[in-house]
């Protein structure tokens, strides 16, 4: 049987997710034994439009990106959003809360009109996305598992419960007990509460957990003494394209 052909593409993003894949090191070689990589610009020279699975990183931020993404969608049997920028819009959506002339001129000054741009958005607002590998950055182990499930022809599973579940398992003290803010209460698990464990708090990079109760979350944050500006900052960090952002 011919090996499935896979390809990697990127739009506006930091390419940190493809780096996570390169960081699989020896395990990457194992995965590569089962597939044929026809396009991986960051690591391999050569490109082909004949592929089965397309992994796409980054957000859509300008009209011309849509044309390229639709082309990828047409060629691919399965399209996978890789990382927060692709899956939920992520950090690129911060600019969506500013007037376009402000952010353009802030960066490019008087030459602001040279380059096209529009509100940043996830892939799913342009094409059908078959699966996602969430997170900023993605977890390489989860990527390997999802890829395996896709290659076996199964619909990949990602956790449908909030980060709090894994955070308890990790033995962390709840950030709210410490008088701090945290988005673990509404964020999809699967990261083993990595940021909380490292002494920070959950930023929401894996997107909203299905059925997230946003009203309740805001009440929890209000009660914990967060001012509205701080709550807004946190909800816009990664969740700017969701209903959570204020």
């Amino acid at each position: 049987m011919a090996k499935p052909k896979i390809a990697f593409f990127d739009f506006a993003g930091c390419e940190g997710d493809q780096l996570q894949i390169a960081n699989l090191e020896e395990r990457l070689l194992d995965i590569l034994g089962h597939v044929e990589v026809v396009s991986f610009r960051e690591v391999v020279t050569g490109h082909s439009d004949d592929y089965d699975v397309a992994f796409v990183e980054g957000s859509i931020t300008r009209p011309e990106d849509e044309i390229r993404l639709k082309e990828i969608r047409k060629n691919a049997k399965v399209l996978v959003a890789l990382g927060a920028c692709a899956a939920i819009g992520g950090i690129n959506c911060l600019k969506n809360f500013m007037a376009e002339n402000v952010y353009r001129e802030e960066v490019y000054g008087g030459s602001a009109r040279w380059f096209p741009t529009y509100a940043a958005r996830p892939l799913k607002s342009v094409v059908k996305v078959d699966a996602e590998v969430p997170g900023c950055p993605i977890d390489p182990v989860e990527f390997a598992r999802i890829t395996k499930e896709l290659l076996q022809g199964r619909a990949p599973w990602i956790p449908d419960f909030p980060v709090c579940v894994e955070c308890k398992q990790a033995g962390n003290v709840c950030r709210y007990e410490m008088g701090k803010m945290c988005l673990g209460i509404i964020t999809r698990a699967g990261c083993k509460a990595a940021c909380v464990t490292e002494g920070a708090h959950c930023w929401g990079c894996r997107g909203l957990v299905p059925g997230a109760n946003l009203d309740a979350a805001r009440i929890v944050m209000d009660r914990a003494g967060s001012d509205r500006k701080a709550t807004q900052d946190l909800l816009r960090f990664f969740l700017g394209d969701t209903g959570a952002a204020l």
Binding site: F11, E15, G16, D17, T61, M98, Y103, D233, F237
Partner: peptide, 28 residues
């Protein structure tokens, strides 16, 4: 490359969040 406007996205952000935002400029 698609421009991403990080310097504009930083405006108004709290000093404790700034390095987490600019981190996303580059994965490497």
């Amino acid at each position: 490359e698609a421009p991403r406007f990080f310097e504009a996205m930083l405006i108004g952000r709290d000093y404790k969040d700034v390095h987490h935002i600019v981190s996303r400029i580059c994965g490497i």
